[in-house]
Design a protein around this nucleic acid. Structure first.
Lengths: 330, 330
DNA sequence: CTGTTAGCGCATTCAC
DNA sequence: GTGAATGCGCTAACAG
């Protein structure tokens, strides 16, 4: 910048002002400076600017595992919104335990991120998160960490589980099982909660063994579905609390020669990209990923800009996407 | 930091030295300073440090679309390696055209990233990329941009296409079709190139209509497969140049009541997470994602650290993953 | 309309 | 062993 000033024969502050349009500069000086800038391929340093202004235009995004399609899609929307609003994303995968998580958090604080978007898994890992440096706004997605004062965006998971189950019930099913992730994950608990509520309301008793816990992966879903098939009384419909798991179920059904939805209906949750082209295409609950991401980023940036501060908690609703593999009970 | 120094009754430079272990400090002073740091929850500023040291420990990662499972998985490994080596990732989606791309590049330069990891789609968009600010090391993944002097990591796509096709041929198939993305994508061209080479070597003539171009998505694969089925002479096997598309094919097959691999064998490319639990599980070519990511990051960081500079181009080989849907020709 | 200057938080050279 | 002082590149008063 100093060099630009010299070569243009003006002061360093004038250069600054033509760059930022921050005060009136005569046309010829402005052109001359701009010319030198182009010629020298000068690019202002956001680092120095950040040091001076005490803001980095960067937000940290901490997710359990960015290669999970659901998070990958969420991240994509977060990135999109952030970019439009002039912010950059630093991507962090929390997966790998509390040590990893707090190491990351520490780094983010050192980098002086303006805000943090937190998608906590809800597993025990998360305790490494707190306490955070007061002063960095946080918005949480989907899961409220106990003790963390931060805005929260919810995706209506309990309601989603309820809707999915209602769909099955309305099709006439009564022998409905539920396949879900580990019991200690809030993500699981809420979705299953919706399932149980729907069943209760419909007056259908749920045997404890009708709720099968497995890993939150396709392999987990695959295994769980096989267990279900092995029962003397297999269910006629299954609510699977995650598309990844549901895909595993579909795969297990195919391998076992069980027709979906002929013999058993399956409904998933998340509406990941692969769901629409599964075989058969998966009926599922679609969380409002795009809206959640947009709202989260917008709200975070509002906070960054110093908006007042009543803690907000917003719940957005998901929608039921009906595709092939759910059918009326014969 | 100044405050820490005051409260500890030492000079600011001593504080710096205890933080960085950069010179001998008497035990009691060190403890006192550390105590104050903890008490005040002081976190050093990476921003100031970067300004001083002229490095940010940040690398930019520019991909076409991070929500595509293949890229999402690649990114996950990149992030993993970078973290272990003390670097952060700024995630950028190029998707959205040249304007978007150069805007991003500009931002990255302003942020003074230490290096750039480039996963170019190879579409025309890319021209916005050049020229980049000389001085920032770049490593390209999978695709060499013409005119860009940068290290390159290849995933053996031509060879992968060849392997996939060989697999089909060895199973006895001769009526083999190829479903692939837009003809102008290098990704497509190389994989199809391998297909054609294998066919040629096997002495099998390839009718022009046996290579079907469609969108690089599940929907594209779905449509293409339906076209293939509608022919008077449907193929007995199909090499699909992308798992996403292959999933679409499987879905179309299911909907049409065509048994896979009974009536037609299908082989994909990418080994995305969903492939193993498709119905039926998808045979595919697995690019060495983890190795590519690791090597790319390591090489980039070497460059950042100022390693000499003969431009390197490394090719890693993919592997064939045989699962259900390929079967001998009856 | 334009120039001078101080200081953001830190690493580092040079004295002591 | 420790402290004082300089400058990284930039913005924002404050003068002219």
């Amino acid at each position: 910048m100093k060099q630009v000033a010299q070569r243009a024969g003006v002061s360093i502050s004038t250069v600054s002002h033509v760059i930022n349009n921050t005060r009136i500069v005569s046309a010829d000086v402005r052109d001359r400076v701009q010319g030198v800038i182009d010629e020298m391929r000068y690019v202002p340093s956001a680092v120095a600017r950040s040091l001076k202004n005490d803001k980095t235009n960067t937000i940290g995004v901490l997710v359990p595992n960015s290669s999970n399609p659901y998070f990958a899609e969420l991240i994509r929307w977060i990135e999109e919104t952030a970019f439009q609003l002039g912010y950059h994303i630093i991507l962090c995968n929390a997966h790998g335990g509390p040590r990893r998580q707090s190491a990351y958090l520490r780094l983010l604080m050192e980098k002086r991120i303006d805000g943090l978007l937190l998608v906590a898994s809800g597993a025990d890992d998360d305790h490494g998160l707190l306490p955070h440096d007061e002063g960095v706004p946080i918005v949480q997605l989907e899961r409220a960490l106990p003790g963390l004062d931060a805005d929260l965006i919810l995706g209506g998971q309990e309601e989603g589980g309820y809707q999915a189950t209602r769909h099955l019930i309305e099709l006439g099913h009564r022998a409905i099982a539920c396949v879900c992730g580990p019991a200690d994950l809030p993500r699981t608990r809420e979705r299953v909660g919706g399932f149980l509520r729907a069943m209760r309301e419909a007056g259908i008793a749920v045997a404890p063994e009708s709720v099968v816990h497995a890993e939150f992966t396709s392999a987990g879903g695959h295994a769980a579905f096989n267990m279900l098939l092995a029962r003397k009384q297999p269910p006629s419909a299954v609510f699977v609390a995650s598309d990844l798991m549901a895909l595993g179920c579909l795969c297990a059904a195919g391998a076992a020669g069980v027709r979906v939805p002929g013999q058993v209906s399956v409904i998933g949750y998340d509406d990941i990209g692969g769901a629409g082209f599964a075989s058969p295409p998966l009926t599922t609950i679609a969380p409002p990923k795009q809206d959640m991401a947009r709202l989260a980023v917008e709200q975070l940036i509002e906070r960054i800009k110093g908006a007042p501060a009543p803690l907000r908690s917003t719940a957005l609703a998901g929608t039921l996407v009906v595709r092939a593999p759910t059918a009326p009970f014969h």
